[in-house]
């Protein structure tokens, strides 16, 4: 059973989102998603000041057997990409919700975060996929 922290919000495409105290959002991929991909070998993060709409592909993560896009959960402007992942993509495998974060985002609309899925709803999606 994969780890789905209560305090985070989620997307159907397996991103997790955390709201920081200053209102910015931190985004990564879930433990479930990293498990599906297997050993990650490369991560391409967005650059500061890139702007995306919700659903745009804004990062790429790559394992030996698959490459997968990371989609922007809400409209906003990138503040920072996690450059440490360039040298250590496996961080996502080991610590998907911590040091394995992928980028930080300034949302256009502060309320967009609240529209995202909660942990229970996401857990259902994962359970369905495991079926």
């Amino acid at each position: 059973m994969s780890n789905i922290p209560d305090e985070l919000r989620y997307t159907k495409s397996h991103e997790w989102v955390r709201r920081e105290e200053d209102g910015t959002l931190t985004v990564g991929i879930t433990d479930h998603a990293q498990g599906l991909l297997g050993d990650l070998v490369f991560v391409e993060t967005p650059e500061a000041e890139d702007t995306f709409s919700s659903g745009d592909d804004c990062a790429v993560i790559e394992s030996v057997k698959a490459a997968s896009d990371v989609y922007c959960p809400v409209d906003g402007e990138v503040i920072e990409g996690n450059e440490a992942l360039a040298d250590a993509p496996e961080t996502i495998n080991h610590d998907a919700y911590g040091d394995g974060w992928i980028f930080k985002l300034k949302p256009e609309d502060g309320g967009a975060f609240d529209e995202l899925m909660g942990h229970e709803e996401y857990a259902e999606i994962v359970a369905e996929e495991d079926h």
Binding site: V41, F42, V64, K65, A66, A67, D69
Partner: peptide
């Protein structure tokens, strides 16, 4: 680096 290739990335 096969993940760049068509059999995995398909339309991308």
């Amino acid at each position: 680096l096969q993940a760049r290739e068509q059999h995995i990335r398909r339309s991308k």
